[in-house]
Design a binder for these strands. Structure first.
Lengths: 368, 368
DNA sequence: TCTCCCAATGAATCCATCT
DNA sequence: CAGATGGATTCATTGGGAG
C-alpha cells in the first residue's frame, strides 16, 4: 500500500508510511502545500504533581511520560509555534487542521493557531460518555476534550461534507458537541507486556467523524503526533492516504502492525455508538435551575398526605428528612423506594400537577 | 437592599449596585482582595478596525488583511490583560473567576488567564439544547459556549459545593458539560422598542448553577460586563451580594428594573447539601472517654478479615501494629490509607455496627 | 452456554490541618 | 516549610471467573 506521489515536480510524498523522528524536522522535509488535512494530538502538558488514588485505594495510572513534560508555558508556546509553522507550510491553501487538547493546553494552542493565520471554523467538544470521575470530589468531572478545526487562512475553501454529517446525525445538522465513548475494550491496544500500548489512544469513532466530515477519498492526511496510529488506521479504512510522524519506536511498531491489519470496511459500523439512546435522564435539579420550580416552593404528594419544600440544589426537605425527591418520598411513606417523579406534585391554578409534566417538557425541548 | 461594607477599614464596597462606567476604571476604585467571585462575559466583537495603528504609528491599511487581523488580536489581548489584572487585584486570595466565551475569544482569554497566574480548575461546556442552526451549511452547528473556572492562584482554597452539585445531578458527580437551553421566552428581556434588550443575554439557569457551585450565601459576586444583569438577578435570588459594572445606560436601566423585581428565596431553601468535610472533627478517643466503647473491646473490619483491640488512649492494637484507627486499618490492608471510621465495626446484639454510627451520635449532640 | 458478580481502569493540573 | 496525621472520595464499561 505504500506509495509516493510527486507534487508540482518537487519531492515525493511518503504516503501511508510512518516516519520516524521529530515532527518538526520531518514536516520540514516535505514539499510545501502538499497535504489536505492535518490531525494533531500534541502533548497536553498536564503538569501532574503527586500520585492519585481511587477511593478503593488503587492508584491511577497517570500520564507521566517524558514527552508530556514542559518546563513552562513559554516553553510549551514555543514548541506549539514551531510545529504549527511547519504544519502550515505543508498544508495546501484549501487545507485544514484539527488539533485536540484539554484545558491544560488548548487555549495556548488556539491562540497560536490564530496568531499563525489559521482561521477557526469550529471548536468541537468531544463529550465522553464514560470519563474517569473526579475521585476527590474537588472539581467537576473532566468529561470532555476540545478540538479546534481551522482552515489554513480566512477564505480558504476547506472541505466540509455537510450532507454526510447530517446523515450521520439522523438528518439533523451535526452539532459542535459529539458524544463518544473513550477508547477501551478490544480497541485499546496492548503492548507485549499486556499494558496499554499508549496512554492516550484516541477512539476510532472520533477520527472517523473527523475524516468523514473534512476530507474526501484520496486526500492526504498527516498526523505529526502519530502515537499508535488511530489516524492512519481510520484513514486507510476510509480510503484516504496518510502520513504519520512518530518519535518513539515502540509506538511506531504497534501502529504499523495495527494498520497492516486494517481493511477498508463498511464504515457505518463505527457510528453505531453515536445513534439514538434511551430517553435522556433529566435530573430534578434542572427544574429548579430553569425556574420551573422555585426554591422554597412546596410540593405535595399525590395522596395529599405529605408535603416537602424544594431547595436550591434540587433536594427536598420535609419534617425530619432531606434528600432527593425519591429518598424523601420513600421515607415519608415508610417504603423502601419511591418514584419521586410520579409521587410529587406542585400547585398550578390551585390544582395539583405532577412534576413529571415538567420533565416531559424538558425532554420535548431536548428532542428539538 | 443596597448596602455598603468596609473591608479592613478601607473604602466601602458598593454592594448590590450597578456601577456606571468602564469596568477597568471601576474595578480599580474597589479595595483589593475584597470580592469572592467574579463572573465575566467579556465582549469579543470589538470594533477596533477604525483606529488601529502599527507600532510605527502609521495608520493600518484597511486592505492589508493580515495586518488587520493580527493587530486586532493584539488589541484584544491587551484589553483582556488589563481587565484581568484589575479583576485579579480585587479578588480575595481564595476567590475564583468564571469567564464565558466562544471560539472567537476564549482561547485568548484562557491564555491570558494562565499568564496572569490564575489556576484553571475546569473548562465547562454550556451545551445549548436549542442552538441557532447554521443556515449556510458550511460548518457544524455552533451549539455550545465555553466557560473557564479558575482560582486566583495555584493552591487557592476556592469554594466548591461538591455535594450540592451532586444532588442537583441526581446524585452523580456533576460533569464539565452542562446541558441548558438558551435564554428566550419570558426570560428574554425586551427594550422599550420591543427588541431584545441585549444580544447575548445569558440564561438564569447557567448562573444559578455557577453561583450554587462556587459561592456561599453572603458572598460578594462581581460582574464587570453586567449587561442586563443576569448575574445580579440570580445572586439576589440566591442570597449572594453582587456588584455590577456596565457602561451602557440602557442596559443598566433594564437590569435595575429586572433586579428590583426579583425576590430572594427563603433562607432555609437556600441551605444546600453539605459534605462530610464540613462536619466537625470527632477524635476516636472520645468514644472511649464517653464509654461508648470500652478499653479492651474488640473491633472487626467490615470485610471480616481483621480485628483489633481498643486501648484506653483511643488507639488500636492488632497483631503487629499499634496506632490510630486509620493507621492500623491501612497497615492491615496493606493500603496507602484507610478511613478507620468506615472500616471498623463493633458488635451489638451479635451484629457488626460501624463505629461511624457512634460518631454521628456525638455530632448530633453537638448540634443541640 | 448463559448469567451474575467482582475486579480493573480511563489525558487528573484531585485534601486539610496541625506539629 | 516540610512532614505527619486524620480521614474523605468514584462512574461507566469491560472482561474474566464463578455458578
Amino acid at each position: 500500500m505504500t506509495k509516493t506521489t510527486t507534487q508540482q515536480g518537487q519531492r515525493a510524498l511518503p504516503l501511508n508510511q510512518i516516519l520516524p523522528g521529530d515532527c518538526i524536522a520531518e514536516m520540514n522535509k516535505l514539499p510545501e502545500a502538499s497535504v489536505d488535512l492535518i490531525f494533531a494530538d500534541p502533548p497536553y502538558n498536564l503538569q501532574l504533581k503527586g500520585n492519585l488514588h481511587r477511593p478503593d485505594n488503587s492508584q491511577v495510572d497517570a500520564v507521566d511520560d517524558h514527552w508530556d513534560q514542559f518546563d513552562s508555558f513559554k516553553a510549551y508556546d514555543t514548541f506549539t509555534e514551531e510545529w504549527l509553522a511547519a504544519a502550515r507550510r505543508i498544508l495546501k491553501p484549501d487545507g485544514a487542521i484539527w488539533v485536540i487538547g484539554s484545558y491544560h493546553n488548548i487555549f495556548r494552542v488556539g491562540t497560536k493557531l490564530q496568531d499563525a493565520g489559521f482561521w477557526i471554523l469550529n471548536d468541537v467538544i468531544w463529550r465522553k460518555s464514560n470519563p474517569m470521575p473526579n475521585f476527590r470530589g474537588m472539581r467537576l468531572t473532566n468529561a470532555h476534550e476540545t478540538m479546534i478545526w481551522a482552515s489554513k487562512s480566512e477564505g480558504g475553501k476547506y472541505t466540509f461534507n455537510y450532507e454526510a454529517m447530517k446523515a450521520l446525525n439522523d438528518d439533523v445538522q451535526m452539532r459542535s458537541d459529539w458524544v463518544l465513548p473513550i477508547c477501551n475494550g478490544h480497541e485499546r491496544l496492548k503492548n507485549s507486556r499486556g499494558e496499554k500500548a499508549h496512554p492516550t489512544q484516541k477512539p476510532e469513532a472520533l477520527l472517523h467523524r473527523v475524516l468523514l466530515a473534512t476530507t474526501n477519498p484520496g486526500d492526504v492526511v498527516l498526523d505529526p503526533f502519530f502515537g499508535t496510529g488511530t489516524t492512519g488506521a481510520v484513514a486507510k479504512m476510509l480510503g484516504r492516504d496518510f502520513i504519520g510522524i512518530e518519535r518513539e519506536a515502540e509506538y511506531r511498531e504497534v501502529a504499523q502492525k495495527r494498520i497492516d491489519n486494517v481493511r477498508k470496511i463498511d464504515s457505518d459500523a463505527l457510528e453505531i455508538t453515536t445513534s439514538k439512546r434511551a430517553e435522556p435522564r433529566v435530573p430534578f435539579g434542572q427544574l429548579v435551575e430553569r425556574g420551573m420550580l422555585r426554591p422554597g416552593e412546596m410540593l405535595i404528594s399525590g395522596n395529599g398526605k405529605n408535603a416537602a419544600k424544594v431547595r436550591a440544589d434540587g433536594t427536598l426537605v420535609a419534617r425530619d428528612v432531606k434528600g432527593s425527591i425519591h429518598k424523601v418520598g420513600a421515607h415519608l411513606e415508610g417504603a423502601p423506594s419511591c418514584n419521586g417523579w410520579t409521587y410529587w406534585h406542585f400547585k398550578r391554578d390551585g390544582k395539583p400537577v405532577s412534576i413529571d409534566v415538567l420533565r416531559q417538557q424538558i425532554r420535548a425541548e431536548m428532542r428539538d
